[in-house]
Nucleic acid binder design. Structure first.
Lengths: 210, 210
DNA sequence: TAACTTACTGACCGGATAGTCATTAAATTA
DNA sequence: TAATTTAATGACTATCCGGTCAGTAAGTTA
Protein backbone atom coordinates (compact mmCIF):
# COMPACT_ATOMS: atom_id res chain seq x y z
CA UNK A 1 0.00 0.00 0.00
CA UNK A 2 1.19 3.53 -0.82
CA UNK A 3 2.67 5.51 1.99
CA UNK A 4 1.03 8.85 2.74
CA UNK A 5 4.22 10.32 4.09
CA UNK A 6 5.19 13.20 1.76
CA UNK A 7 8.65 12.10 0.69
CA UNK A 8 11.14 14.88 1.03
CA UNK A 9 13.56 15.37 -1.85
CA UNK A 10 16.56 17.66 -1.92
CA UNK A 11 16.66 19.55 -5.21
CA UNK A 12 18.52 22.75 -4.60
CA UNK A 13 18.98 23.58 -8.28
CA UNK A 14 15.40 23.16 -9.40
CA UNK A 15 13.62 24.98 -6.57
CA UNK A 16 14.08 28.64 -7.55
CA UNK A 17 12.63 28.32 -11.04
CA UNK A 18 9.82 26.09 -9.80
CA UNK A 19 8.98 28.70 -7.20
CA UNK A 20 9.04 31.62 -9.63
CA UNK A 21 6.90 29.63 -12.06
CA UNK A 22 4.34 28.95 -9.35
CA UNK A 23 4.47 32.58 -8.26
CA UNK A 24 3.98 33.87 -11.79
CA UNK A 25 0.83 31.84 -12.17
CA UNK A 26 -0.65 32.95 -8.89
CA UNK A 27 0.40 36.60 -9.18
CA UNK A 28 -1.25 36.79 -12.59
CA UNK A 29 -4.38 35.03 -11.34
CA UNK A 30 -4.90 36.93 -8.11
CA UNK A 31 -2.47 39.82 -7.99
CA UNK A 32 0.58 40.25 -5.81
CA UNK A 33 -1.06 41.33 -2.57
CA UNK A 34 -3.81 38.71 -2.73
CA UNK A 35 -1.42 35.81 -3.34
CA UNK A 36 -0.46 33.86 -0.22
CA UNK A 37 3.08 32.56 -0.03
CA UNK A 38 1.76 29.34 1.47
CA UNK A 39 -0.09 28.74 -1.78
CA UNK A 40 2.94 29.55 -3.91
CA UNK A 41 4.94 27.01 -1.92
CA UNK A 42 2.18 24.42 -2.17
CA UNK A 43 2.00 24.79 -5.94
CA UNK A 44 5.75 24.41 -6.20
CA UNK A 45 5.61 21.29 -4.06
CA UNK A 46 7.53 22.64 -1.07
CA UNK A 47 6.75 24.25 2.27
CA UNK A 48 6.63 27.94 2.99
CA UNK A 49 9.85 27.68 4.93
CA UNK A 50 11.66 26.41 1.85
CA UNK A 51 10.51 29.40 -0.13
CA UNK A 52 12.32 31.60 2.37
CA UNK A 53 15.51 29.65 1.81
CA UNK A 54 15.58 30.90 -1.76
CA UNK A 55 13.95 34.34 -1.58
CA UNK A 56 14.41 36.91 1.15
CA UNK A 57 10.89 38.26 0.97
CA UNK A 58 7.68 38.25 -1.01
CA UNK A 59 8.90 41.32 -2.86
CA UNK A 60 12.19 39.64 -3.80
CA UNK A 61 10.17 36.78 -5.28
CA UNK A 62 8.14 39.26 -7.29
CA UNK A 63 11.27 40.88 -8.64
CA UNK A 64 12.69 37.51 -9.64
CA UNK A 65 9.52 36.68 -11.57
CA UNK A 66 9.72 39.93 -13.53
CA UNK A 67 13.39 39.53 -14.22
CA UNK A 68 13.13 35.96 -15.42
CA UNK A 69 10.08 36.54 -17.59
CA UNK A 70 10.49 39.86 -19.32
CA UNK A 71 14.09 40.85 -19.64
CA UNK A 72 15.13 38.14 -22.11
CA UNK A 73 12.35 39.22 -24.46
CA UNK A 74 13.45 42.84 -24.41
CA UNK A 75 16.99 41.74 -25.23
CA UNK A 76 15.67 39.74 -28.15
CA UNK A 77 13.84 42.80 -29.47
CA UNK A 78 17.07 44.77 -29.31
CA UNK A 79 18.79 42.08 -31.35
CA UNK A 80 16.04 42.19 -33.98
CA UNK A 81 16.34 45.98 -34.30
CA UNK A 82 20.13 45.80 -34.51
CA UNK A 83 20.17 43.48 -37.52
CA UNK A 84 17.11 44.86 -39.30
CA UNK A 85 17.61 46.34 -42.75
CA UNK A 86 14.18 46.81 -44.32
CA UNK A 87 11.69 49.64 -43.91
CA UNK A 88 10.74 51.19 -40.56
CA UNK A 89 7.21 49.87 -40.96
CA UNK A 90 8.62 46.39 -41.35
CA UNK A 91 10.71 46.84 -38.24
CA UNK A 92 7.69 47.94 -36.23
CA UNK A 93 5.82 44.92 -37.56
CA UNK A 94 8.64 42.57 -36.54
CA UNK A 95 8.96 44.02 -33.07
CA UNK A 96 5.24 43.69 -32.59
CA UNK A 97 5.30 40.10 -33.83
CA UNK A 98 8.13 39.19 -31.49
CA UNK A 99 6.38 40.78 -28.53
CA UNK A 100 3.25 38.91 -29.35
CA UNK A 101 4.84 35.51 -29.78
CA UNK A 102 7.14 35.79 -26.76
CA UNK A 103 4.79 37.55 -24.35
CA UNK A 104 1.25 37.83 -25.66
CA UNK A 105 0.85 34.14 -26.33
CA UNK A 106 2.65 32.90 -23.23
CA UNK A 107 1.94 32.89 -19.53
CA UNK A 108 3.94 36.10 -19.20
CA UNK A 109 1.07 37.91 -20.90
CA UNK A 110 -0.32 38.75 -17.47
CA UNK A 111 2.71 40.70 -16.30
CA UNK A 112 1.86 44.12 -17.76
CA UNK A 113 -1.47 44.14 -15.96
CA UNK A 114 0.23 42.87 -12.82
CA UNK A 115 2.73 45.71 -12.91
CA UNK A 116 0.09 48.33 -13.57
CA UNK A 117 -1.97 47.04 -10.68
CA UNK A 118 0.84 46.86 -8.14
CA UNK A 119 3.21 49.66 -9.21
CA UNK A 120 2.02 52.20 -6.67
CA UNK A 121 2.18 49.89 -3.69
CA UNK A 122 5.59 48.48 -4.59
CA UNK A 123 7.56 51.40 -6.00
CA UNK A 124 10.88 49.62 -5.83
CA UNK A 125 9.71 46.80 -8.06
CA UNK A 126 8.02 49.32 -10.35
CA UNK A 127 11.27 51.22 -10.70
CA UNK A 128 13.12 48.03 -11.55
CA UNK A 129 10.54 47.13 -14.19
CA UNK A 130 10.60 50.63 -15.60
CA UNK A 131 14.36 50.72 -16.01
CA UNK A 132 14.76 47.23 -17.40
CA UNK A 133 11.65 46.65 -19.46
CA UNK A 134 9.65 49.77 -20.24
CA UNK A 135 12.54 52.17 -20.87
CA UNK A 136 14.25 49.73 -23.21
CA UNK A 137 11.01 48.80 -24.96
CA UNK A 138 10.19 52.42 -25.57
CA UNK A 139 13.69 53.06 -26.88
CA UNK A 140 13.20 50.29 -29.43
CA UNK A 141 10.00 51.79 -30.78
CA UNK A 142 11.47 55.28 -30.65
CA UNK A 143 14.45 54.24 -32.77
CA UNK A 144 12.15 52.66 -35.35
CA UNK A 145 10.04 55.82 -35.54
CA UNK A 146 13.11 58.02 -35.91
CA UNK A 147 14.44 55.84 -38.69
CA UNK A 148 11.12 56.14 -40.51
CA UNK A 149 10.95 59.91 -40.09
CA UNK A 150 14.55 60.34 -41.24
CA UNK A 151 13.85 58.45 -44.46
CA UNK A 152 10.57 60.26 -45.13
CA UNK A 153 8.65 57.02 -44.71
CA UNK A 154 6.84 58.59 -41.73
CA UNK A 155 5.82 62.20 -41.31
CA UNK A 156 7.48 64.20 -38.53
CA UNK A 157 5.79 64.00 -35.14
CA UNK A 158 6.89 64.31 -31.54
CA UNK A 159 8.78 61.08 -30.93
CA UNK A 160 8.17 60.53 -27.20
CA UNK A 161 4.45 61.05 -27.48
CA UNK A 162 4.11 58.98 -30.61
CA UNK A 163 5.89 56.09 -28.91
CA UNK A 164 3.16 56.00 -26.31
CA UNK A 165 0.33 56.16 -28.81
CA UNK A 166 1.92 53.29 -30.75
CA UNK A 167 2.45 51.09 -27.71
CA UNK A 168 -0.80 51.78 -25.87
CA UNK A 169 -3.16 49.54 -27.86
CA UNK A 170 -0.80 46.60 -27.56
CA UNK A 171 -0.54 46.97 -23.80
CA UNK A 172 -4.26 47.53 -23.42
CA UNK A 173 -4.97 44.29 -25.24
CA UNK A 174 -3.12 42.35 -22.56
CA UNK A 175 -4.28 44.48 -19.66
CA UNK A 176 -7.83 44.04 -20.80
CA UNK A 177 -7.57 40.30 -21.10
CA UNK A 178 -6.38 39.98 -17.51
CA UNK A 179 -8.81 42.43 -15.97
CA UNK A 180 -12.21 43.20 -17.42
CA UNK A 181 -11.84 40.47 -20.01
CA UNK A 182 -13.95 38.03 -18.03
CA UNK A 183 -16.99 40.31 -18.30
CA UNK A 184 -17.14 40.10 -22.06
CA UNK A 185 -18.41 36.90 -23.57
CA UNK A 186 -16.85 37.34 -27.00
CA UNK A 187 -13.25 38.42 -26.70
CA UNK A 188 -11.95 40.19 -29.76
CA UNK A 189 -9.53 38.13 -31.80
CA UNK A 190 -6.03 39.35 -30.86
CA UNK A 191 -4.57 38.78 -34.31
CA UNK A 192 -7.25 40.88 -35.94
CA UNK A 193 -6.83 43.53 -33.27
CA UNK A 194 -3.10 43.75 -33.92
CA UNK A 195 -3.64 43.76 -37.68
CA UNK A 196 -6.03 46.69 -37.47
CA UNK A 197 -3.71 48.55 -35.16
CA UNK A 198 -0.78 48.12 -37.55
CA UNK A 199 -3.00 49.08 -40.45
CA UNK A 200 -4.16 52.30 -38.77
CA UNK A 201 -0.57 53.07 -37.84
CA UNK A 202 0.73 52.45 -41.34
CA UNK A 203 -1.70 54.91 -42.85
CA UNK A 204 -1.64 57.26 -39.86
CA UNK A 205 2.14 57.63 -39.76
CA UNK A 206 2.56 57.76 -43.52
CA UNK A 207 4.65 60.67 -44.82
CA UNK A 208 2.85 62.96 -47.30
CA UNK A 209 5.42 62.39 -50.03
CA UNK A 210 4.69 58.67 -50.33
CA UNK B 1 -10.50 76.88 26.70
CA UNK B 2 -11.45 74.63 23.81
CA UNK B 3 -12.76 71.20 24.69
CA UNK B 4 -10.89 68.28 23.16
CA UNK B 5 -13.99 66.13 23.14
CA UNK B 6 -14.75 65.38 19.46
CA UNK B 7 -18.21 66.83 19.19
CA UNK B 8 -20.61 64.39 17.66
CA UNK B 9 -22.95 65.79 15.03
CA UNK B 10 -25.86 63.95 13.46
CA UNK B 11 -25.81 64.56 9.70
CA UNK B 12 -27.57 61.64 8.14
CA UNK B 13 -27.92 63.30 4.71
CA UNK B 14 -24.34 64.39 4.23
CA UNK B 15 -22.55 61.23 5.38
CA UNK B 16 -22.86 58.96 2.32
CA UNK B 17 -21.36 61.40 -0.17
CA UNK B 18 -18.64 62.40 2.28
CA UNK B 19 -17.77 58.76 2.74
CA UNK B 20 -17.69 57.98 -0.99
CA UNK B 21 -15.56 61.05 -1.59
CA UNK B 22 -13.07 59.95 1.04
CA UNK B 23 -13.13 56.40 -0.33
CA UNK B 24 -12.51 57.59 -3.90
CA UNK B 25 -9.41 59.43 -2.83
CA UNK B 26 -7.99 56.52 -0.89
CA UNK B 27 -8.93 53.82 -3.40
CA UNK B 28 -7.19 55.79 -6.14
CA UNK B 29 -4.13 56.41 -3.97
CA UNK B 30 -3.64 52.92 -2.58
CA UNK B 31 -6.01 50.57 -4.36
CA UNK B 32 -9.10 48.87 -2.99
CA UNK B 33 -7.51 46.04 -1.05
CA UNK B 34 -4.83 48.21 0.52
CA UNK B 35 -7.26 50.85 1.75
CA UNK B 36 -8.36 50.46 5.39
CA UNK B 37 -11.91 51.35 6.24
CA UNK B 38 -10.70 53.00 9.43
CA UNK B 39 -8.80 55.47 7.28
CA UNK B 40 -11.77 56.13 5.01
CA UNK B 41 -13.89 56.89 8.07
CA UNK B 42 -11.20 59.11 9.54
CA UNK B 43 -10.91 61.15 6.36
CA UNK B 44 -14.68 61.56 6.28
CA UNK B 45 -14.64 62.69 9.89
CA UNK B 46 -16.59 59.77 11.36
CA UNK B 47 -15.83 56.46 13.03
CA UNK B 48 -15.64 53.10 11.31
CA UNK B 49 -18.90 52.06 12.92
CA UNK B 50 -20.67 54.94 11.23
CA UNK B 51 -19.41 53.84 7.86
CA UNK B 52 -21.22 50.54 8.41
CA UNK B 53 -24.46 52.39 9.08
CA UNK B 54 -24.43 53.59 5.48
CA UNK B 55 -22.70 50.80 3.55
CA UNK B 56 -23.15 47.09 4.11
CA UNK B 57 -19.58 46.16 3.24
CA UNK B 58 -16.35 47.43 1.79
CA UNK B 59 -17.46 46.16 -1.60
CA UNK B 60 -20.75 48.07 -1.41
CA UNK B 61 -18.78 51.23 -0.75
CA UNK B 62 -16.63 50.51 -3.80
CA UNK B 63 -19.69 50.09 -5.98
CA UNK B 64 -21.16 53.36 -4.72
CA UNK B 65 -17.96 55.20 -5.62
CA UNK B 66 -18.03 53.87 -9.18
CA UNK B 67 -21.68 54.64 -9.63
CA UNK B 68 -21.46 58.18 -8.36
CA UNK B 69 -18.31 59.07 -10.28
CA UNK B 70 -18.62 57.56 -13.73
CA UNK B 71 -22.21 57.03 -14.75
CA UNK B 72 -23.19 60.72 -15.05
CA UNK B 73 -20.30 61.30 -17.44
CA UNK B 74 -21.35 58.44 -19.69
CA UNK B 75 -24.87 59.85 -19.81
CA UNK B 76 -23.47 63.21 -20.82
CA UNK B 77 -21.54 61.60 -23.68
CA UNK B 78 -24.74 59.99 -24.88
CA UNK B 79 -26.44 63.39 -24.91
CA UNK B 80 -23.59 64.89 -26.94
CA UNK B 81 -23.83 62.12 -29.53
CA UNK B 82 -27.60 62.42 -29.73
CA UNK B 83 -27.58 66.10 -30.65
CA UNK B 84 -24.43 66.10 -32.80
CA UNK B 85 -24.79 67.05 -36.44
CA UNK B 86 -21.28 67.62 -37.85
CA UNK B 87 -18.76 65.12 -39.20
CA UNK B 88 -17.92 61.84 -37.49
CA UNK B 89 -14.40 63.06 -36.87
CA UNK B 90 -15.84 66.07 -35.06
CA UNK B 91 -18.03 63.81 -32.96
CA UNK B 92 -15.06 61.67 -31.94
CA UNK B 93 -13.20 64.84 -31.08
CA UNK B 94 -16.09 66.10 -28.93
CA UNK B 95 -16.52 62.81 -27.09
CA UNK B 96 -12.82 62.73 -26.38
CA UNK B 97 -12.89 66.32 -25.15
CA UNK B 98 -15.82 65.60 -22.84
CA UNK B 99 -14.14 62.53 -21.43
CA UNK B 100 -11.01 64.47 -20.79
CA UNK B 101 -12.66 67.43 -19.09
CA UNK B 102 -15.06 65.37 -16.98
CA UNK B 103 -12.78 62.45 -16.09
CA UNK B 104 -9.19 63.01 -17.15
CA UNK B 105 -8.82 66.35 -15.39
CA UNK B 106 -10.76 65.40 -12.25
CA UNK B 107 -10.19 63.13 -9.31
CA UNK B 108 -12.15 60.41 -11.13
CA UNK B 109 -9.18 60.02 -13.46
CA UNK B 110 -7.90 57.22 -11.23
CA UNK B 111 -10.93 54.99 -11.63
CA UNK B 112 -9.98 53.19 -14.85
CA UNK B 113 -6.71 52.03 -13.32
CA UNK B 114 -8.52 51.11 -10.13
CA UNK B 115 -11.00 48.96 -12.06
CA UNK B 116 -8.30 47.28 -14.10
CA UNK B 117 -6.35 46.49 -10.95
CA UNK B 118 -9.26 45.09 -8.95
CA UNK B 119 -11.54 43.57 -11.59
CA UNK B 120 -10.40 40.00 -11.13
CA UNK B 121 -10.69 39.99 -7.36
CA UNK B 122 -14.10 41.66 -7.33
CA UNK B 123 -15.98 40.25 -10.31
CA UNK B 124 -19.34 41.57 -9.20
CA UNK B 125 -18.11 45.17 -9.17
CA UNK B 126 -16.32 44.58 -12.45
CA UNK B 127 -19.53 43.32 -14.03
CA UNK B 128 -21.39 46.37 -12.79
CA UNK B 129 -18.74 48.68 -14.21
CA UNK B 130 -18.70 46.83 -17.49
CA UNK B 131 -22.45 47.05 -18.00
CA UNK B 132 -22.84 50.67 -16.95
CA UNK B 133 -19.68 52.36 -18.11
CA UNK B 134 -17.61 50.36 -20.57
CA UNK B 135 -20.43 48.91 -22.65
CA UNK B 136 -22.08 52.29 -23.05
CA UNK B 137 -18.79 54.07 -23.72
CA UNK B 138 -17.89 51.58 -26.42
CA UNK B 139 -21.35 51.93 -27.96
CA UNK B 140 -20.81 55.68 -28.26
CA UNK B 141 -17.52 55.30 -30.12
CA UNK B 142 -18.98 52.49 -32.23
CA UNK B 143 -21.87 54.67 -33.36
CA UNK B 144 -19.50 57.47 -34.34
CA UNK B 145 -17.35 55.07 -36.35
CA UNK B 146 -20.38 53.61 -38.10
CA UNK B 147 -21.62 57.05 -39.00
CA UNK B 148 -18.24 57.90 -40.50
CA UNK B 149 -18.06 54.67 -42.48
CA UNK B 150 -21.59 55.08 -43.79
CA UNK B 151 -20.81 58.55 -45.12
CA UNK B 152 -17.50 57.51 -46.66
CA UNK B 153 -15.61 59.78 -44.27
CA UNK B 154 -13.90 56.67 -42.82
CA UNK B 155 -12.86 53.55 -44.69
CA UNK B 156 -14.58 50.31 -43.78
CA UNK B 157 -13.01 48.34 -40.94
CA UNK B 158 -14.22 45.90 -38.33
CA UNK B 159 -16.18 48.08 -35.92
CA UNK B 160 -15.70 46.21 -32.64
CA UNK B 161 -11.97 45.93 -33.04
CA UNK B 162 -11.54 49.50 -34.21
CA UNK B 163 -13.42 50.73 -31.14
CA UNK B 164 -10.78 49.17 -28.96
CA UNK B 165 -7.87 50.56 -30.93
CA UNK B 166 -9.44 54.03 -30.74
CA UNK B 167 -10.11 53.88 -27.00
CA UNK B 168 -6.91 52.17 -25.87
CA UNK B 169 -4.49 55.11 -25.95
CA UNK B 170 -6.92 57.27 -24.00
CA UNK B 171 -7.31 54.67 -21.28
CA UNK B 172 -3.60 53.94 -21.18
CA UNK B 173 -2.88 57.62 -20.61
CA UNK B 174 -4.85 57.51 -17.34
CA UNK B 175 -3.77 54.03 -16.34
CA UNK B 176 -0.18 55.04 -16.83
CA UNK B 177 -0.48 58.18 -14.78
CA UNK B 178 -1.80 56.21 -11.81
CA UNK B 179 0.60 53.30 -12.02
CA UNK B 180 4.07 53.54 -13.52
CA UNK B 181 3.75 57.30 -13.88
CA UNK B 182 5.77 57.96 -10.76
CA UNK B 183 8.85 56.28 -12.29
CA UNK B 184 9.12 58.77 -15.10
CA UNK B 185 10.39 62.21 -14.25
CA UNK B 186 8.97 64.00 -17.28
CA UNK B 187 5.39 63.01 -17.84
CA UNK B 188 4.24 63.55 -21.40
CA UNK B 189 1.85 66.46 -21.79
CA UNK B 190 -1.67 64.96 -21.93
CA UNK B 191 -3.01 67.55 -24.35
CA UNK B 192 -0.23 66.87 -26.81
CA UNK B 193 -0.73 63.15 -26.37
CA UNK B 194 -4.42 63.41 -27.16
CA UNK B 195 -3.74 65.71 -30.11
CA UNK B 196 -1.33 63.24 -31.66
CA UNK B 197 -3.70 60.39 -31.06
CA UNK B 198 -6.55 62.23 -32.80
CA UNK B 199 -4.22 63.23 -35.60
CA UNK B 200 -3.08 59.66 -36.20
CA UNK B 201 -6.68 58.52 -36.08
CA UNK B 202 -7.87 61.17 -38.51
CA UNK B 203 -5.36 60.15 -41.13
CA UNK B 204 -5.51 56.45 -40.23
CA UNK B 205 -9.27 56.14 -40.51
CA UNK B 206 -9.54 58.36 -43.57
CA UNK B 207 -11.58 56.90 -46.44
CA UNK B 208 -9.72 56.62 -49.74
CA UNK B 209 -12.22 58.72 -51.63
CA UNK B 210 -11.66 61.87 -49.57
C1' DT C 1 27.86 2.73 9.30
C1' DA C 2 28.74 6.53 12.10
C1' DA C 3 29.38 11.38 11.98
C1' DC C 4 28.35 15.35 9.65
C1' DT C 5 26.21 18.87 6.63
C1' DT C 6 22.31 21.21 5.01
C1' DA C 7 17.78 21.18 2.38
C1' DC C 8 13.53 21.10 4.11
C1' DT C 9 9.56 21.32 7.35
C1' DG C 10 5.59 23.24 9.87
C1' DA C 11 4.20 25.10 14.22
C1' DC C 12 4.32 29.45 15.80
C1' DC C 13 4.46 34.74 16.43
C1' DG C 14 3.13 39.43 15.71
C1' DG C 15 0.67 42.73 13.41
C1' DA C 16 -2.98 44.06 10.71
C1' DT C 17 -7.97 44.72 9.61
C1' DA C 18 -13.06 43.59 8.09
C1' DG C 19 -16.97 43.49 10.47
C1' DT C 20 -19.89 43.48 15.19
C1' DC C 21 -22.37 45.31 19.02
C1' DA C 22 -23.20 47.19 23.60
C1' DT C 23 -23.00 51.81 24.89
C1' DT C 24 -23.38 56.93 24.44
C1' DA C 25 -25.41 61.12 23.38
C1' DA C 26 -27.74 64.25 19.95
C1' DA C 27 -32.12 65.38 18.40
C1' DT C 28 -37.19 64.86 18.71
C1' DT C 29 -41.57 64.28 20.88
C1' DA C 30 -45.00 64.57 24.48
C1' DT D 1 -38.03 68.47 31.00
C1' DA D 2 -38.77 63.67 30.89
C1' DA D 3 -39.19 59.96 27.70
C1' DT D 4 -38.07 58.22 23.34
C1' DT D 5 -35.62 57.48 19.10
C1' DT D 6 -31.62 56.75 16.51
C1' DA D 7 -26.98 58.60 14.71
C1' DA D 8 -22.61 57.79 16.16
C1' DT D 9 -18.94 55.54 18.73
C1' DG D 10 -14.87 52.52 19.65
C1' DA D 11 -13.54 48.44 21.99
C1' DC D 12 -13.71 43.87 20.65
C1' DT D 13 -13.59 39.39 17.94
C1' DA D 14 -12.23 36.36 14.50
C1' DT D 15 -9.24 35.64 10.94
C1' DC D 16 -5.63 35.96 7.93
C1' DC D 17 -0.80 35.98 6.49
C1' DG D 18 4.32 37.44 6.11
C1' DG D 19 8.11 35.98 8.23
C1' DT D 20 10.91 33.03 11.89
C1' DC D 21 13.32 29.17 13.79
C1' DA D 22 14.03 24.90 16.34
C1' DG D 23 13.83 20.50 14.77
C1' DT D 24 13.94 16.59 11.07
C1' DA D 25 15.77 13.75 7.68
C1' DA D 26 18.07 13.35 3.03
C1' DG D 27 22.39 12.99 1.21
C1' DT D 28 27.66 13.02 1.83
C1' DT D 29 32.04 11.98 3.79
C1' DA D 30 35.37 9.29 6.30
Amino acid sequence: MPTKAPLRKRRKEARPSELTAAALGLFVEKGFAATRLEEVALRAGVSKGTLYLYFDSKEALFKAVIQEGMMPVVAEGEAIAARHEGSATDLLQRLLENWWVRIGETEYAGIPKLMVAEARNFPEVAQFYYENVIRRGRALVGAALERGMASGEFRRMDIETTIEVVIAPILMLLIWRFSMGACQSNQADPRQYLAIHMDLLRQGLQGSRV
